[in-house]
């Protein structure tokens, strides 16, 4: 049973890595941000599978941090404005 969980986790990791192509090809920063979002959601999926497979329930807390960081990073990203850094 645990082998199946790990196998699916690997499938998710591959899917996630393929999705990261979006970060390379862009074209806008928003597209890259979305790929980072995908990383967050898939990462949580992977952790949810690994927690029972490896017998480490605390991985769920790691997933929680992922979720919080994803939420904050998008909010921060969309608040940036043109020329904001210039005095």
């Amino acid at each position: 049973m645990h082998e199946i969980l790990i196998a699916v986790a690997i499938i998710l990791l591959i899917s996630m890595s393929v999705g990261l192509i979006r970060i390379v090809i862009g074209p806008t920063p928003a597209d890259r941000m979305m790929a980072a979002q995908l990383l967050g959601t898939s990462g949580i999926g992977v952790l949810a599978l690994l927690a029972p497979a490896l017998g480490v329930p605390a991985l769920m807390d790691v997933a929680l941090i992922f979720a919080l960081l994803a939420a904050v990073s998008v909010a921060a990203f969309t608040r940036r404005r043109v020329g904001q850094d210039r005095p």
Binding site: P29, A30, M34, A67, V74, T78
Partner: peptide, 29 residues
Amino acid sequence: LLWLLIMASGATASHLIAKRALRGDGEDY
């Protein structure tokens, strides 16, 4: 709880990204 958080933040994030693109007030324009 984690799923609810992901859904709420995912829906809000997509709204924010779409709004930013529609209004064209982000840094990439």
